[in-house]
Computed example of a mutant assay.
Amino acid sequence: MTDRLDEGQAQPPIRGLSTLGWAWTSYEQTDTVMRLFRKDLSTTRQVAVVEWLIDGEPFTERMRFPNGTPCNDMTLMHDAPHFPPAAVASLRALLSMAGPEQEPVDFSDGRVGLLFCHQCGDLYCGAVSASVVVSDSTVEWRDIAYQDGNTEEIGDAEVAAFTLTFERAPYESTITALIEDWTARSEDQRASTSTP
């Protein structure tokens, strides 16, 4: 016998769903200028960054190495001036949407970057990536793992790949709101740099 839901009847919740959220956090960035015949100059500043939350917990905690070493990778949504266009591209990729952005945010095998190098934000340094699989009711980040930027090999023996499944409507709502915000930031940045 097959259970059938009549029109208008509430569907039972899907087990094992995670909730995607985000929060502002910060990290310390140190930039060093190497100078010939003089002491190198270093400057340190706090950089605000949007961090993914999975069921209210930082996603980077799930990527922590067994020896306690934290995941230094992060989203492309932070206040460094060259990141907002890449932020929009990375968010659109999480909805499986192609966009006009030229910033590479996915690998040639179709896997999408979730967290990127904390210094340059470039895939070539490697990234935490996943296959984004969209169904009628869910979105999966399938086989989340570190991916090498040069060879595109997936996985790190110390951190096992895992999958997260989200309810599609709230997931898309979260990502769409972030796209709107970061698109506006990108446009503001372009306007401020093009004004003489």
Rank of each mutant, 00 (worst) to 15 (best):
S131K: 15
C120T: 15
E61P: 00
L41N: 07
L17S: 05
D40M: 04
R62E: 00
Q46H: 04
Q11H: 06
I179E: 04
N72F: 13
V133E: 09
W141G: 02
S194W: 08
A161N: 02
A160E: 13
L95F: 07
M34I: 10
A48N: 14
I154E: 04
R168S: 11
G56P: 11
R185P: 08
R4V: 13
D31N: 10
T30E: 13
M97P: 00
A98M: 06
D6S: 12
Q46K: 15
T195H: 13
Y146E: 10
G99F: 04
S194V: 04
V133Q: 10
I175P: 12
S192K: 13
H82Q: 13
V88D: 06
E7Q: 01
M63P: 02
M77T: 01
Q119F: 11
Q46M: 08
T75Q: 08
L5M: 09
T30V: 15
R62T: 01
M97D: 05
D3W: 03
V33M: 06
Y27P: 07
P196D: 14
A161S: 14
A86D: 03
M74S: 06
C117N: 02
E180R: 15
T183E: 15
D73W: 13
P100K: 08
A87P: 12
E61Y: 09
H78F: 06
G8A: 05
I54Q: 00
P12F: 02
G110I: 05
M63F: 01
V134S: 13
C117E: 01
S135K: 12
C120Y: 12
R45K: 14
A160T: 15
E101S: 04
R64W: 00
E51P: 01
F65A: 05
E103D: 14
E101M: 07
D188H: 13
V47P: 03
K39G: 00
G68S: 03
K39V: 01
S90C: 02
A80E: 12
R62A: 02
A127F: 07
Q29P: 00
M77G: 01
I154Y: 04
A80G: 05
A10L: 12
I154P: 00
H78T: 02
L20E: 01
A169F: 09
A89T: 11
M97V: 03
V105K: 05
Q29L: 10
V49D: 02
I54F: 00
I175Y: 12
Q46V: 03
F37M: 10
D188Y: 05
M1E: 09
Q46E: 14
A184E: 15
P81Y: 10
T174A: 14
A160I: 09
L94K: 14
L41W: 02
Q9N: 00
L94W: 09
V49C: 11
